[in-house]
Nucleic acid binder design. Structure first.
Length: 326
DNA sequence: ATGTAAAATAAACTTACTTCA
DNA sequence: TATGAAGTAAGTTTATTTTAC
């Protein structure tokens, strides 16, 4: 049994899951593939769900079982490096925001990361407004005088703390405000990873350091993966229960058939037969093993049958025909 | 209602690895 | 081919919040 996880990156679907459901760009969902197969090689540090670097290995998978795929919400397409950004309703998540001269996109938001060099921006997000995190929020992130809740005040403290850190004082770890978190969540729904420009823009927008935004996304991805793993475990548990039930049922059926066999002697002459059904064409192949008493050798032959296996004993005529054939 | 320890959560850090120029 | 920068996943640490008592 093989489990593969895709945490939102449908740009790189599992190669062995050919029946990946098509998701629209607006779909929010996770993908999980479940199938049996053999991996020719696995990396020593094989990471759960880290499929993006395993394409070649995926290509070598051998599986005849139809895969099962679980789609969960929310889906978050992951833009890879050097991949063109997908359409987004977050202008700060597009390269258009900062690149095209003459472009009006992003200008209305009141920031343009092109004005910042990499270093300037990196430091600037934290230093832009040393003592007024609230007032510097371009999008008015909820820290309003007189109404500030606890977390809002913490956000102010966070800003000051980052200043302290950069002044060489002890860094104090503080939580982001609800609005900041919500904003980051919305961004995460659009892109679970950020390119540097997006990171800078988001940091500036939220009055956070780019490093804080980066860490938040890293942690968010980890949380997503953890939750997905929990969901997967539950799903596999249910699969296991179902298969256990089926196994018990088949064992009982086998027991019944054996009892029937002892009560009807002509069965004694029948060789042991293994039925195998091709999952694609649904044709049944039987592998019949006969033992020659005189030579004590075992011979096998495979017979393809057009129909599904019969669950009832053959008629007397059929038995005779079978014996004649063998 | 209040205090406190334990558990849970989330921000930040470290390390190992991959990709790419 | 070697190398360093950049980015990410995974694991860990630690500050803060929540919960149970």
């Amino acid at each position: 049994m093989e489990l593969a996880l895709s945490l939102g990156d449908t740009s790189k679907p599992f190669k062995f899951l050919d029946k990946t459901p098509k998701l629209s760009s607006k779909d929010l969902g996770f993908c999980m593939g479940l199938g049996s197969g053999v991996t020719a090689s696995t990396r020593s540090h094989d990471k759960l769900g880290s499929h993006e670097n395993n394409h070649q290995e995926d290509d070598r998978r051998v599986s005849s079982d139809p895969p099962l795929q679980l789609v969960l919400l929310p889906f978050s397409p992951v833009p890879r490096r050097h991949q063109p950004p997908s359409k987004t309703r977050f202008p700060w998540l597009t390269d258009n925001l900062v690149s095209e001269p003459g472009s009006t996109e992003g200008s209305g938001r009141g920031f343009d990361v092109n004005r910042l060099s990499m270093d300037d921006a990196d430091e600037g997000a934290a230093l832009s407004s040393p003592n007024s995190a609230a007032s510097s929020f371009q999008m008015d992130f909820g820290i309003r005088s007189g109404r500030g809740n606890k977390r809002d005040l913490e956000a102010i403290e966070a800003s000051r703390a980052s200043d302290d850190e950069e002044n060489g004082l002890t860094r104090k770890k503080l939580r982001l405000s609800k609005d900041q978190s919500a904003f980051l969540e919305e961004s995460f729904k659009e892109h679970s990873t950020l390119n540097p420009k997006q990171k800078l823009a988001l940091a500036k927008q939220l009055n956070l350091r780019p490093r804080q935004v980066e860490v938040w996304f890293q942690n968010r991805r980890a949380r997503t993966k953890l939750k997905q793993t929990e969901v997967d475990c539950e799903y596999l548990k249910r699969c296991c229960e179902t298969l256990t039930k089926e196994n018990r049922r088949l064992q009982k059926e086998l027991q019944d058939l054996r009892a029937l066999k002892t009560s009807q002697p002509f069965y004694m002459q029948l060789p042991a037969t293994t039925l195998t059904m091709c999952p694609s064409c649904e044709r049944v192949a039987t592998t019949t093993t006969t033992t020659n008493p005189s030579t004590s050798t075992t011979t096998s032959k495979t017979v393809s049958l057009p129909a599904k296996p019969r669950l009832f004993p053959m008629s007397h005529g059929q038995v005779q025909a079978h014996q004649a054939a063998s």
